[in-house]
Design a protein around this nucleic acid. Sequence first.
DNA 1: AAGTGCATTTTTGTATACAAAAAACTTGAC
DNA 2: GTCAAGTTTTTTGTATACAAAAATGCACTT
Lengths: 224, 224
Amino acid sequence: MEQRLADTIAQDLEELIFDGTYSDGDRLDEVKLADQFGVSRTPLREAFQRLALSGLVDLIPRRGAFVRQPGPVELMEMFEVMAELEAVCGRLAALRISDAALKELADANTRCQMAVDAGDPDIYYLENERFHRIIYNQSGNSFLEQEASKLHRRLKPFRRQQLRFRGRMSQSMSEHEDIVQALSDSDPEKTADALRSHVAVQGEKFHNLMSSLKSHAQVVSSSR
Amino acid sequence: MEQRLADTIAQDLEELIFDGTYSDGDRLDEVKLADQFGVSRTPLREAFQRLALSGLVDLIPRRGAFVRQPGPVELMEMFEVMAELEAVCGRLAALRISDAALKELADANTRCQMAVDAGDPDIYYLENERFHRIIYNQSGNSFLEQEASKLHRRLKPFRRQQLRFRGRMSQSMSEHEDIVQALSDSDPEKTADALRSHVAVQGEKFHNLMSSLKSHAQVVSSSR
DNA sequence: AAGTGCATTTTTGTATACAAAAAACTTGAC
DNA sequence: GTCAAGTTTTTTGTATACAAAAATGCACTT
């Protein structure tokens, strides 16, 4: 029973922030949360440190912990970086990818296609994630893989939104095909460009969605 | 008087790890360090959380905190990512940079030149850092700026090593000139390429240094 | 002598206690 | 009624206390 509470609490808090239970600017009350989780303040404060460094929380000395959801501008910036990181992964992977991994990509894609046919965004999302992770991995640079995964995870709730656009799933599919083609051609620049625009489009779609809504908290909360 | 000890401790510990007081695999003894810093274990443990997330420390449940210096392979990976991040900064900055910033770059460069003439690596290092930070900033993407700065900071102790190579300072200088030229030409790709190779060279130099110190460790493309 | 099982010691993780700072509230002057 | 100074209440930051897990040591068996 006795295992790291601080760890699980950090994850739980992350969830609570992602799913919109806490929105931008909210203060995280130590005693209230400690009560809620049934623990003392100590593990909570350790969890806060983690959240602070991953950017989900602002830790203001002698003030407390405040959740910090990225605004529209920062989100666009993050998508831009994600696009570039994926492009780099692709450029490196084009020269380093194994035949086995290429086959895995193709498999993930056929499962994506099945999800498109079935009109199931959840399965599509799952397979899409696998697709991208394979490319991160095949960059042959595990530090890059980690960084890309980290940002990918952070953008997860927002990335997901754009699948709601009519036709986006099938468009995304054909982009995937292009990427696989470029990879099997071992063409670094073509792969990089394909991935960059594939991700950049997601950012743009999201931006469209944002500007059509008032509060992005709604967007986040509906992604659960 | 009473201000965040956890913060200062995290920084101090970082220093201690960077300057080699603690090396790879060493366990950080909570009570010993608490004694040493004259504080209790609580702020120390909070500091550990931070170090863990920035990758300097492995936090193994029920075991303790172990310092984790990147090995040669991981260092090369980090330099590769740094090179790509700087390239992205440059590509964006080429289109977005202000005249004022261009002038600042030129100024930093002349101060670099003065440092080269004086044979002062410390001043060179300082101005070089300023030079790069300006480019991060002029990418116009503050998230990217942050990420680049973070990695730059983490590579600091290793980056510095390569200035020891004979002639590296002046070579670095002329690369800086090329970068400024590409930026003032507003040429994204040329800027990106110039920055990428500028940083990649640092990684290679460092690699040379490593393999001349230790028994030649071959860097393989696919790890694990 | 090596290995195993148990008791002891260390060390980690969490709870609680306490001190200092910030926020909230009260009271009084204008 | 508003503002300000002082007082109370909350809340953060740190220290200490305690419980559980891991590490260590030691006797005992083979």
